[in-house]
């Protein structure tokens, strides 16, 4: 609320021109216009689809890979350098290559989201597996748990708090990377909305796009936090 009051004060005080800092009222009016025309929902749906698509693929790959490397320390040691190198490459720097390889359509954008969210998920899940109390190995041996039973009853629930941390971080990174990708190569999505509005000098619409991203990001994060809390009541101190 304080931020909105400060924003309203600064934008109406004349310190900044309305072009640089539109008033909250103007931004809200643009928001309503975009809602009424259906343009905003179209962009939100396009961006959300890409985020969830790429994010889902990252989850599908990161979880089994983390589990495999947890049980294969040699394979993990051999792959570590390659993964570390890939981790330090900003996904947005790969856009030219991805467009060359995958075209300008959806696959390139999904790949950007995938690359942005994969490492936070993988690293947190892998760390979650590594943090499992080794005393549980003895317990699972004495209870004669099979590998599948051990995964179901011990490894998966023990690493669940870290899995949710990875999902939350990965989801946040997905949005960041997607909007970057949409700014460069897209005809729909919130990134496109921001880029297009910027070219048309519609700062008010730029603000609408930015605020939508913030709200959607917070909503997604809160959703993961809510589900995480419900699924891991024994790890309340982690949230």
């Amino acid at each position: 609320m304080l931020i909105v009051i400060a924003w309203a004060f600064l934008s109406s005080s004349g310190i900044f021109s309305e072009f640089l800092l539109p008033t909250p009222a103007k931004v809200f009016k643009s928001f309503l216009e975009l809602c009424e025309s259906g343009e905003l929902s179209r962009h939100i749906l396009a961006s959300s689809g890409r985020v969830f698509g790429g994010f889902f693929m990252a989850v599908i790959v990161a979880l089994p890979l983390a589990y495999f490397f947890y049980h294969s320390p040699e394979a993990e040691a051999r792959s570590k350098l390659t993964l570390e190198a890939l981790r330090f490459i900003p996904p947005l720097s790969l856009i030219p290559l991805l467009i060359l390889w995958l075209g300008i359509g959806e696959p390139a954008k999904l790949a950007i989201v995938f690359l942005a969210s994969f490492f936070p998920i993988y690293l947190n899940v892998f760390s979650g597996f590594k943090q499992i109390n080794s005393a549980y190995d003895e317990l699972s041996q004495t209870l004669r748990l099979t590998k599948l039973e051990k995964f179901r009853h011990i490894e998966f629930p023990a690493s669940l708090p870290n899995i949710f941390t990875g999902l939350r971080l990965g989801f946040g990174y997905s949005w960041r990377a997607l909007v970057g990708a949409e700014l460069i190569a897209a005809t729909s999505g919130l990134g496109y909305l921001i880029g297009d509005a910027s070219e048309m000098s519609r700062t008010d619409r730029v603000f609408v796009g930015i605020l939508c991203i913030a709200v959607l990001g917070i909503a997604g994060d809160q959703l993961f936090q809510f589900i995480g809390k419900r699924c891991t009541p024994w790890a309340r101190n982690k949230w």
Binding site: Y136, E138, L139, T142, L143, H153, I154, P157, A158, A235
Partner: peptide
Amino acid sequence: KISLVFQDPRLLPWKSVRENLELAIR
């Protein structure tokens, strides 16, 4: 059939008492 009772109870925190016990007779 051998059972081992550890020095620390080593209960699984994500399972209720019933579930912890049932695991041994699943």
